[in-house]
Design a binder for these strands. Structure first.
Length: 292
DNA sequence: ACTATGCCCTGGGTGC
DNA sequence: TGCACCCAGGGCATAG
């Protein structure tokens, strides 16, 4: 499942290979039509053909390919999508959904087992990601911002971390990892975190994303980089999919539960739920604060 | 305004 | 060996 470090790795891999290239021929294969969101598949193919790629950007988990007509081709890989360069003669992957022939003889392949990936072609990238907040590695995602988004909230902090309006780019792997680093129980209500814990969590989000980026991402299953290779970070995670194994800090067995509808991994000793009556400076819910 | 739930999709794993 | 069933989850819509 590509999250921020994985998409950023793809962006960095593809930039030198795609910038300046012209998209000669675009083919969305039968069965892959659903990836075309803003246009009908044949129309999207025609609109992309002939365009030159000017730069590659990223916001959260969205890859932004800026084209020479001023529009942006916005690609989201969801869980099983991959986008990488391959020689023209390379046989299609079993789950190839689209293929783009480039003007240097190479090709760009879009593989996606579960067909959840999306392509938007828009004038402004923001149109394709209307429910998205600041990028988790951007300036705007500050301790102050995180505190404001968590304050007064009763939802589990893990659910709030997964909310792309809070921190765009954080997904299930790095939410679990950040909570372990900050020693926060995933079910802690957002508003129950002390200011110190919010700062620790903010730092932990940056730490886990940057660590993974240094390892070119995590390949738990389908993730591949811009050259079709695997990341290396999945062997270095602290808790994600490590249930039954010892916590690297205290040796306690990592457990798996379900929070916000997602598989959630944590150390039951390092990550304790605060007592229900333990008020923190901002620990009251908005409702409670009104009553006070 | 906020929270919880279900949907999309399909290969891989499990249990009988 | 075969088959039915369940699980994985990002973003969105919907309900409460």
């Amino acid at each position: 499942m590509p999250e921020l470090p994985e998409v950023e790795t793809i962006r960095r891999d593809l930039t030198p290979l795609l910038v300046g290239r012209r998209l000669l021929r675009v083919r969305i294969h039968p069965g892959g039509e659903r990836l075309a969101v803003t246009h009908a598949p044949r129309d999207l193919e025609r609109q992309l053909e002939g365009r030159r790629v000017e730069s590659l950007g990223r916001h959260g988990k969205y890859l932004l390919l800026r084209l020479d007509d001023g529009r942006t081709w916005v690609v989201h890989l969801r869980m099983t999508g991959s986008l990488h360069i391959a020689p023209a003669e390379a046989p299609p992957h079993r789950f190839e959904r689209a293929r783009i022939d480039l003007d240097d003889g190479s090709t760009l392949r879009f593989n996606d087992l579960r067909k959840f990936g999306t392509w938007h072609l828009v004038d402004e990238a923001a149109e394709a990601m209307p429910h998205t907040g600041p990028d988790a590695l951007g300036e705007e995602f500050s301790p102050r911002w995180l505190a404001a988004r968590l304050g007064g909230r009763s939802a589990p902090v893990k659910a709030l971390l997964l909310d792309q309006r809070v921190a765009a780019g954080v997904g299930n792997i790095y939410a679990d990892e950040a909570l372990w680093i900050a020693r926060v129980h995933p079910e802690t209500p957002g508003g129950r975190l002390s200011p110190a814990k919010v700062r620790a969590l903010h730092a932990a989000v940056l730490e886990t994303l940057e660590d993974s980026l240094g390892d070119r991402g995590s390949s738990f299953s389908d993730y591949r980089d811009g050259l079709g290779g695997e990341g290396m970070h999945h062997v270095r995670v602290h808790v994600f999919r490590r249930e039954g194994q010892p916590c690297g800090r205290c040796g306690t067995t990592i457990v798996k539960s379900r929070v916000a509808g997602r598989g959630t991994h944590y150390c039951p000793k390092c990550q304790r739920l605060p007592r229900a009556d333990a008020g923190s400076p901002s620990g009251l819910t908005k409702r409670e604060r009104r009553r006070t």
